[in-house]
Amino acid sequence: MAEPVYRRVVIKLSGEYLAGTQSCGIDQSTVDRLAGELIAAQKLGTEIAVVVGGGNIVRGLEVSLRGISRPTGDTMGMLATVMNCLALEAAIERKGALARTLSAFVMPEISELFTRSATHKYLAEGRIVLLGGGTGNPFFTTDTTAVLRAAEIGAQAVLKATNVDGIYSADPKKDPSARRFDRLSHSEAIEGGYKVMDATAFALARETSLPIIVFSIAEPGSIGAILRRTGRGTVVAG
């Protein structure tokens, strides 16, 4: 079996994916499967931190459109990401592996505060580190959080888990003629307006020289395959 090419990565999981086939909430079978995928990938020898979205519970932008201020709505969304991290942490530990949730918010009864030193410590202990609370500030997505945290902790890549196996010229579920890209530069990803990540995340990745690999989490073993560069996805780099 090929060795992983990355020593440390940040994996970005969408909150919506945690809902499974439900319209919202947390689907336990999906969370359990993701926990198993993360544990299997870590066993390859890569240190893994995970940023999870909160869209399965509440999306700050949508809440703000209904009359709540955008900062308040975004804070609600960031708290939802902590809930998702705790669910994933529990699933990982039920499977016999070690995990730790760190949050951008001070909430000592619930989770430890995110710091670079704490993240390095828990990764070195062999824990899968779950990073909740977004950046701790409104107006920033969890995509941007994933790139920011990757730069902060010295990760070598951001793995963006989606429902499709890379970046396409159009939505492949709506346009059968959509072209899939094997590789794009950060600038090409921004200029193309591809919705798989927001422009701020791509711009920060360009500034920090971090590759982003977009792949389908629906495929069993896909995280490990991406780590070994045998999986199918789009690399955004350079």
Rank of each mutant, 00 (worst) to 15 (best):
G25Y: 02
V9F: 05
L98Y: 10
E152G: 06
A146S: 04
A225G: 06
A40V: 10
P4M: 14
A90G: 03
L184R: 11
R183H: 14
T30H: 12
Y168T: 03
A49E: 09
E37G: 00
A80K: 12
A150F: 09
L88Q: 01
G25C: 03
T162V: 02
M107R: 01
G36T: 13
S69C: 10
E93V: 06
P172R: 01
I223E: 01
A151G: 11
D175A: 11
E3R: 12
G166E: 11
G96D: 05
R149N: 07
R183K: 01
A40P: 03
A49D: 12
G126Q: 13
S29N: 09
A90C: 09
L18C: 01
S177A: 06
G55C: 04
L210H: 06
G15Q: 02
T75G: 00
R59K: 07
G54L: 02
I226V: 13
V235T: 07
L88T: 15
R116K: 08
S64K: 10
T142P: 00
S216G: 12
R232K: 15
R7S: 08
S222Q: 11
P176F: 05
Y6T: 01
Q156W: 05
A218G: 02
G132E: 01
A19C: 10
L13Q: 05
C85I: 03
G134V: 07
G25H: 06
V51S: 01
K195I: 09
P108C: 02
L88A: 00
Q28T: 10
G134P: 10
T21N: 14
N137G: 06
I110K: 04
A118G: 07
V235E: 14
T115K: 06
F139I: 12
E191D: 08
I92Q: 10
R206N: 09
S117V: 15
A157Q: 05
L159K: 13
E207I: 13
Q28H: 14
V63A: 11
A161E: 02
S14A: 15
A87P: 12
N137S: 15
G15R: 11
Q22M: 14
R228S: 07
A124S: 13
L130N: 13
R183E: 09
L34M: 14
G73A: 12
